[in-house]
Lab assay of single mutants.
Amino acid sequence: MKVIFLKDVKGKGKKGEIKNVADGYARNFLFKQGLAIEATPANLKELE
């Protein structure tokens, strides 16, 4: 799953980066902790 990092995550990505991560990792950790959001077309447009 592609995500947009909202904060730096050690060993995974830095704020503003778009990366592929495991679905479970994204849903169970990154999204719940507010560290990333899903890289949907709408979210990508907001990032620009």
Score class of each variant (00 low, 15 high):
Met1Gln: 05
Met1Thr: 12
Lys2Asp: 11
Lys2Tyr: 15
Lys2Arg: 13
Val3Trp: 01
Ile4His: 02
Ile4Glu: 02
Phe5Trp: 03
Phe5Asn: 00
Leu6Thr: 05
Lys7Pro: 00
Lys7Arg: 13
Asp8Gln: 03
Asp8Ala: 06
Val9Tyr: 04
Lys10Ala: 14
Lys10Phe: 13
Lys10Gln: 14
Lys10Asn: 11
Lys10Thr: 13
Gly11Val: 02
Gly11Ser: 07
Gly11Ile: 02
Lys12His: 15
Lys12Ile: 15
Lys12Met: 15
Lys12Val: 15
Gly13Glu: 01
Lys14Phe: 13
Lys15Ile: 09
Gly16Val: 00
Gly16Trp: 09
Glu17Tyr: 03
Glu17Lys: 03
Ile18Phe: 04
Lys19Gly: 07
Asn20Gln: 14
Asn20His: 15
Asn20Val: 15
Asn20Ile: 15
Val21Arg: 00
Ala22Glu: 13
Ala22Phe: 10
Asp23Tyr: 14
Asp23Gly: 12
Tyr25Pro: 08
Tyr25Ser: 05
Tyr25Arg: 06
Ala26Tyr: 13
Ala26Asn: 03
Arg27Glu: 09
Asn28Asp: 14
Asn28Gln: 10
Asn28Val: 07
Phe29Ala: 06
Phe29His: 11
Leu30Ser: 00
Leu30Ala: 01
Phe31Lys: 03
Phe31Met: 07
Phe31Asp: 02
Phe31Pro: 01
Phe31Thr: 03
Lys32Leu: 13
Lys32Val: 14
Gln33Trp: 15
Gln33Leu: 15
Gln33Asn: 15
Gln33Met: 15
Gly34Ser: 06
Gly34Phe: 08
Gly34Arg: 07
Leu35Asn: 02
Leu35Glu: 02
Leu35Phe: 10
Leu35Trp: 10
Leu35Asp: 03
Ala36Val: 07
Ala36Asp: 01
Ile37Pro: 00
Ala39Glu: 03
Ala39Pro: 02
Thr40Lys: 05
Thr40Arg: 05
Thr40Tyr: 05
Pro41Ile: 12
Pro41Trp: 13
Pro41Met: 10
Pro41Lys: 10
Ala42Val: 08
Ala42His: 12
Asn43His: 12
Leu44His: 06
Leu44Val: 11
Leu44Ser: 06
Lys45His: 10
Lys45Leu: 13
Lys45Gly: 09
Glu46Asn: 11
Glu46Pro: 07
Glu46Ile: 12
Glu46Thr: 12
Leu47Phe: 13
Leu47Gln: 10
Glu48Val: 13
Glu48Ile: 14
